[in-house]
């Protein structure tokens, strides 16, 4: 109906990215360190197969060797596991799997959840009621139990893990998007767009969505950490991506069996790397939340 481009639609987005750049320039060193740590881990995980040995190759003459031990294939920087597999190679490969799964699950769950939240908040009435009841019902079962149940029923694999994990993501996005739309729906911004004859889809995509983008980015960061933990927990409980593919959770649960023999590196190495990654992602998420909503500064998550 209206064919002229709407200047208001682009304004919030460019304004936000400018604000983000300014905030980044004066961010504290801890946040910069967190960005650097995440960038490093992602880079190593992406380049993984080029840098390390085969994560499933066994060196049975060098099982359970501590870090810096040498075997038939050279030095094992982080040592070897109970089958003489290179811990560093397994860690990098596990990280890679974890990132692929986490990224996909957050993407799928985020898109679906945001769409449902937008529709629910904007349309209101019966649709809203029904969708929010579904959210309530899902939240009656703790995320871990839900994920575990579905993983036990379905055939294990990367695809299954992604689908199952995206289920715990969508509810969060749906709730946040809905709450934001509810407050935006009555503002002049949406009234004006409606008065000029914009369709509902156009209002939601070009007028509402850019205005809630800030919150969406904040929860995307925090959910990324959340899903990464859930993926590793699933692996730890024995219902993640099946072996011999290394996953972070399975590595820790296998390594735990050798703790009493003093083979600490099998648990400590993957544990420290996972924790550092999560800490960094959370630090970025909290920082994003603070610049997005200054009132929340210093408040716990």
């Amino acid at each position: 109906m209206i064919s002229v481009s709407d200047p208001r639609a682009e304004a919030p987005a460019t304004e936000q990215s400018a604000r983000l750049r300014r905030a980044l320039a004066k961010s504290p060193p801890s946040v910069r360190a967190a960005f650097a740590a995440v960038a490093l881990v992602v880079l190593v995980a992406a380049l993984g197969p080029l840098l390390t040995r085969d994560p499933t190759a066994q060196d049975l003459l060098a099982v359970l060797r501590p870090p810096f031990a040498t075997g038939s294939a050279g030095t094992y920087l982080l040592g070897t596991d109970q089958l003489g597999r290179d811990l560093l190679a397994r860690l990098v490969s596990g990280m890679r799997t974890s990132f692929v799964i986490t990224f996909s699950a957050v993407l799928v769950g985020g898109l679906v959840g945001t769409a449902i939240g937008l529709a629910s908040g904007y349309l209101g009435g019966r649709v809203d009621n029904l969708l929010m009841r579904i959210v309530d019902i899902q939240l009656a079962v703790p995320g871990v139990l839900l994920v575990l149940t579905l993983a036990a029923v379905l055939r294990p694999g990367v695809g299954t893990t992604i689908c199952v994990l995206s289920l715990i993501v969508w509810v969060i996005y749906a709730r946040v998007a809905r709450a934001q739309v509810l407050s935006l729906r009555e503002t002049d911004l949406v009234m004006a767009a409606r008065a000029t004859g914009c369709s509902n889809a156009r209002i939601l995509l070009y007028h509402v969505l850019p205005n809630i983008a800030g919150s969406i980015w904040v929860i995307t960061t925090l959910e990324f950490a959340h899903v990464m933990i859930a993926e590793a927990a699933l692996g730890y409980l024995g219902l993640g991506v099946p072996p011999p593919a290394p996953t972070l959770g399975a590595m820790i649960s296998e390594g735990q069996r050798y703790l009493q023999l003093g083979k600490w590196w099998l648990v400590v190495m993957p544990g420290v790397i996972v924790s550092l990654t999560i800490i960094s992602i959370n630090a970025i998420g909290n920082w994003l939340r603070d610049i997005h909503d200054p009132r929340s500064r210093g408040r716990p998550g």
């Binding site: 933990i229 730890y236 959770g249 649960s253 703790l259 544990g271 420290v272 996972v274 999560i278 716990p300």
Partner: peptide, 14 residues
Amino acid sequence: QSVPHFVVGPLLIL
């Protein structure tokens, strides 16, 4: 608030 259960637990055991 960042270190997951399955890391804290085994480290405490260790």
